[in-house]
Amino acid sequence: MSSMQASHDELLDLVAVYALGALGAEEARIASMHLAVCTECRAEYDALRPAADAVAYAADDRLDLVDCPRIKREIMRAIRPPQRSAIFVASTVAALAAALVFAFIAVSAERKAAETDRTIAALVGPGARQYDVSAGEIVKSGDHIYLVMAKLAPLPAGRVYQAWTLAPGAKTMAPNVTFSPNSQGFVLVTLTEAAQNVGVVAVSVEPSGGSQAPTTKPLFVRPLT
């Protein structure tokens, strides 16, 4: 269906489904474009969207009441860890991106924890700069560039994600580290190229062991500007 072919009543119906968030990509694009130019449909959307959002509140009828306080304790611990340990003090300052909680949840060795804390501190430090990408964020902090990926799909055996960098003025992507997300799609990666040498970051899916040049269309290509 195109916006030209659809009757206006059909478009009003489509806008209602859009407000509910139940359209596929193509129809959502049509609805979004139409809303930009049609005041009647925009008014309908503005009226129905709050009702659609209200539906969410119906979901708290099936909760195990024990869960919420326990989750709260874990979250508060993440943002306010104990004060007596220097390692945990570093974590307090870190402010902890959600993805990092998942990425580091399984880390237990003290040496690894200290390394993790340094990384987190770099990610959220005053000089850190974030660049949104489809699967998470790229963070530039000091000499380092980090990929904080929160939405990566699992890959079949024999495939890995690989980062690529493009130096300012260069025309060819340079291969960087390969990595795989955890079961939740989260992973934190530190690129091996110094930040000052990187103008663009990309990630693609490659065979295990990595490639010398991308062999698949990158998930994203992000200029750090």
Binding site: E74, I75, A78, I79, A95, A98, V101
Partner: peptide
């Protein structure tokens, strides 16, 4: 799925805190 729901809840609130 209780475990994943907990993960998502933590993720949402820690995003509120960090961003």
């Amino acid at each position: 799925d209780t475990a994943t729901a907990e993960d998502v809840t933590q993720s949402v609130f820690l995003t509120v805190w960090t961003r």
